[in-house]
Design a protein around this nucleic acid. Structure first.
Lengths: 232, 232
DNA sequence: TAGTGGTCTAGACCACGGT
DNA sequence: CCGTGGTCTAGACCACTAG
């Protein structure tokens, strides 16, 4: 149900509900979602409000409308192969590599009246020497994870901690990919010159319940292969 | 004045009027346009209709709204979201853009004793000018597509042709993503300087039967947003 | 014909910004 | 305070799709 007198607009609430339903698989790729009329009756809101919610989801690439037919789930889900989001540590162990994390920086920051724990880590694998592969910047909301700053993430897995200590399970990422130029920090870390372009991924990680649990920015070493497969 | 009983929706008519006014300089960059109430009175339509017109112009990057202040002309740079690898033409049409393709180069090449039709196209959308978004290099095996070189892909959709003429349906892609530096060609095409890093996607497209039907390399303009979602 | 989305009206109340 | 945009209601008629 919707919170009629809450601070969050009804169309945003509905938008989030539909988005979650789609991502949780309640409405699957290609399937019809309930019609605008049905939704407006179901949630006791007008069709205009329903339309606003659906229009936003169309802009976000979740839904496609067809006149006279209905509104369809229209996702283009991308899967990754060599590259992994949900736990660098776990992934590397599976590859029989020794994962290595170095906390470069950590602090409490405040963004839009919310406090976050900011964690900057250089990550890589341990061979004869340390081979750095990514530079990770994470922002984790402290209201969701009180006391998070007390853990030592050079030895602990961040996602493992979220799961075990906070029972929060990373479920989904939404990211953008950009090419960037290296700066002094990444040049040193990845041993590249200043003309080397790098890959950066920026976005959000969401938990099971659909809440954003982490804002993340990762710069990848050129040694990391970024591959993906997707169906058309 | 608006044509009240015309075939063109009122909000589209208003949208075009405002767009023209902006492009003709009647409302200049940073200036306020008339308020929603004023426009609704002026054109004898409801505020909802005015809002729909303005919302579209915001999506198109002409206007920015500020709560309590008004709506300002704001010709921000448009960024295009593209998470599709196959079917540029179809994708752009769905976005109500006019797709534009320019064949820069085509030839027959031989790789590992197999002949391919090599097609290099600059692709983008047509607005007041051509906005180039990608530089596509395709390699299509001629044994699968005999006579393919006879089509004119500046006007025809490649994938459409594969489907209609050869009954081959692109089904899956496997690609790698790399950051690259711009070269002279891409600098000119995308109007960027030589220090601008770009995104390149390289890989293969497979048909329904699982055969590789195309080797592809796409360089993206910085105006293209490369976004993806995935479950963990 | 019934159900869908597409467009539009005529209101209402609210939150924000500047006077 | 007033004017702005932000949200929402409760209707209406239309065009399109499918049985």
């Amino acid at each position: 149900m919707l919170h009629k007198n809450g601070v969050i607009p009804l169309y945003i609430q509905l938008q989030n509900i539909l988005k979650e339903d789609i991502l949780q698989g309640k409405y699957k790729e290609g399937e019809l979602i309930p019609s605008e009329t049905v939704l407006s009756n179901q949630y006791n809101i007008t069709r205009s409000t329903v339309r606003k919610a659906i229009s936003n989801l169309i802009d976000l690439g979740f839904i496609r409308r067809e006149h006279g037919k209905g509104s369809f789930v229209s996702l283009r889900e991308v899967r990754y192969k060599m590259w992994n989001f949900g736990g660098f540590t776990e992934f590397m162990k599976k590859q029989n590599k020794v994962p290595y994390s170095e906390v470069l920086h950590q602090e409490m920051v405040s963004i839009e009246d919310r406090s976050y724990y900011k964690l900057v880590r250089a990550r890589g694998i341990l061979e004869d020497h340390v081979e750095y592969l990514t530079l990770d910047t994470s922002l984790l909301p402290l209201d969701l994870f009180p006391g998070l700053e007390k853990f030592d993430f050079s030895t602990l897995s961040l996602y493992d901690t979220l799961r075990k200590r906070y029972e929060v399970f990373p479920a989904r990422v939404e990211v953008g990919v950009q090419p960037i130029l290296s700066n002094k920090e990444t040049q040193q870390l990845f041993k590249v010159d200043r003309t080397t372009p790098l890959l950066e991924v920026q976005g959000s990680v969401f938990g099971n319940s659909g809440v954003e649990i982490e804002k993340v920015a990762i710069v990848y070493s050129p040694k990391v292969e970024f591959q993906l497969m997707t169906s058309l």
